[in-house]
């Protein structure tokens, strides 16, 4: 099972994400976000961040989680490559993520993502697999 696949959306870019557990699903969604932004093979994970996020349901929690990472990327010039979702409920998530500060000669920015949207947003459990769909605004 791939971590995620890109889906075609005319103006923007979307992902279908998969995971054996909700933790893995959320970690894979974050991986997809940064896989779109940069070449992750160049990111070593030198800095650690602890993240706590809340939301009214799993869908909003997913958007808020990705948005938090996007905010850190934008304001602190960070790229993340390692995501460990320590615990998660329908409304709350605690995670430890690792990444690097962007260095011009080392890292490449492939795509600027403006935002994580609520459009077509879904988080579902399908037998033993968790699936999510998220559309990014580019």
């Amino acid at each position: 099972m791939p971590k995620y696949i890109l889906i075609d959306h005319t103006a923007d870019i979307g992902i279908d994400v998969f995971g054996a557990s909700v933790q893995e699903l959320f970690a894979n969604a974050a991986f997809a976000l940064f896989d779109i932004i940069t070449d992750l093979s160049k990111v070593e994970g030198e800095i650690e961040y602890k993240i706590s996020i809340s939301g009214i349901d799993k869908e909003q929690l997913l958007v808020n989680w990705l948005h938090e990472l996007l905010y850190l990327h934008d304001v602190k010039n960070l790229l993340f490559n390692d995501f460990c979702v320590v615990d998660i409920t329908d409304n709350q998530l605690n995670a430890v993520v690792r990444g690097d500060v962007i260095t011009e000669d080392k890292h490449v920015i492939k795509t600027e993502i403006k935002a994580v949207t609520y459009h077509c947003l879904s988080v579902i459990r399908d037998n033993d697999c968790w699936k999510a769909r998220v559309i990014f605004d580019l």
């Binding site: 890109l6 889906i7 075609d8 959306h9 005319t10 103006a11 923007d12 870019i13 795509t111 580019l138």
Partner: peptide, 8 residues
Amino acid sequence: GRVMSRNQ
């Protein structure tokens, strides 16, 4: 107006 997704 786009006709092709960025991916395409």
